[in-house]
Design a protein around this nucleic acid. Structure first.
Lengths: 241, 241
DNA sequence: ACCTGAACACCGTTCAAGT
DNA sequence: ACCTGAACACCGTTCAAGT
């Protein structure tokens, strides 16, 4: 009881965790600059010293949740059978763990999907999944399609990942090159994948990530899987496969 | 040039189509009571004579888009080979057609997902899909799981269909019974499916639609499909399967 | 009956001013 | 440097008043 009062200085972290608590308890629509400030016992305008505007606050919220997925998945993988090459089991654990985090923050999938820009930690998350796929023997091309197909599962039902605006808009090639170089160290598999896919489509560089093709790939995965269930009957126990 | 002026009386349809046009052109965030009114050359408060409030306007927007999916899918099915029993091809056409509609209205999937209540025409759409599945030899149980798995594809990447709030909240059994009776005529397959699933879970009626189970079913469809691609290599041509 | 103007309770954000 | 109060330009919505 020595310093529990309105003594703690405001900080970006304190602002974000207050906003996250409000979203969990009262829903995303309750996350208001004035409300966040009130919960921190401060005036609304004080928030602007730690967050550029509300958009940045929402970005921070998304990054918090993705960060939570990353650490929870990391813990779960560390606890599992160490370093087995079983990509199937690993991906299954990761998606189920991501889902439990998203269920805790049910506003998050919709927010992630509606954000105009992809939150940076998400690339780290997909880099890890990509590493599992490549380690399991996937080509970069098949791994790319797998990323799209699993996208909504890996985030507990979200929107499309690489948003459609990307495929239509013009690309600043110089900036893209620089961005790629910066990514290369921290995201080696993602970088390699993009490079490989771009190489395959150098006649048609815009088509390297065709959302229509990815959609049809996923659709056929599901339809073919359902057809097999129809022929063979339901599988009774996953372990005896 | 006899009556093109501000003569046409306001109506719910005129309000909705103005809102839809604004959403398509300037995005959903531009759909404002004041903006919709301005486009109709009327004061904002006039809208309230044809729409209870903004929530109802958004519901109307969702229903418009779902209606568009229904008619486009209907036309596409009518144009296809008449009355073949090929559920696989029919579902594929339906999902692809739904996607093209959703691409036209890219704000729609997010809006549908964020709506607190399921828009009524959506039941009609899923009734049709269910009819295709049952006609193809699916049990009602497998068809139920298929509906969940295809949910996001059938709507061009949306959120979960039967929202999580349903499974947690308490159910007014009398009201549910009456609702079922009203549905029975127009939605025979959906009604039968719900009844069958409830019968299978009469020990645990709350568990008839377990979103965790549906999630794992879809996840396994995708993972198993990816595993088959990994073993057999990519399929070169769908027609030679 | 349908439409309107003024008003209310909210937003996000700017700006000059405090300490 | 960090925080504040008043103000601005927006929201959705109510209400009494017009025709």
């Amino acid at each position: 009881m020595s310093d529990g009062n309105a003594r703690a200085p405001l900080s970006r972290d304190r602002v974000l965790s207050a906003a996250l608590r409000i979203a969990d308890v009262d829903g995303l629509q309750a996350v208001t600059m004035r409300r966040v400030a009130a919960d921190l016992e401060v005036e609304a305008m004080s928030l602007y010293h730690h967050v550029r505007n509300k958009e940045e606050l929402l970005d921070g919220l998304v990054e918090s949740v993705v960060g939570e997925v990353l650490t929870e998945v990391g813990l779960a993988e560390a606890a599992a059978s160490p370093a087995s090459g079983d990509w199937h089991a690993s991906l299954r654990r990761r998606c189920l763990m991501a889902r439990t985090v998203m269920v805790r923050h049910s506003w998050a999938p919709g927010l992630i999907g509606s954000r105009p820009t992809i939150p940076a930690p998400l690339y780290l998350y997909f880099e890890e999944i990509l590493a599992v796929l490549i380690g399991g023997g996937f080509t970069y091309h098949l791994a790319h399609q797998a990323l799209h197909s699993l996208g909504s599962m890996a985030l507990g039902f979200a929107q499309e990942l690489f948003n459609p605006a990307d495929s239509g808009g013009q690309v600043d090639e110089g900036a893209a090159e620089a961005e790629l170089a910066a990514m290369a160290e921290r995201l080696p598999h993602l970088t390699t994948m993009v490079a490989a896919e771009l190489h395959d489509h150098d006649e048609d560089p815009l088509g390297w990530c065709d959302s229509q093709r990815e959609f049809e790939f996923t659709l056929d995965l599901l339809l073919d899987g359902l057809a097999r269930h129809l022929q063979t009957g339901p599988v009774r126990d996953r372990t005896e496969r």
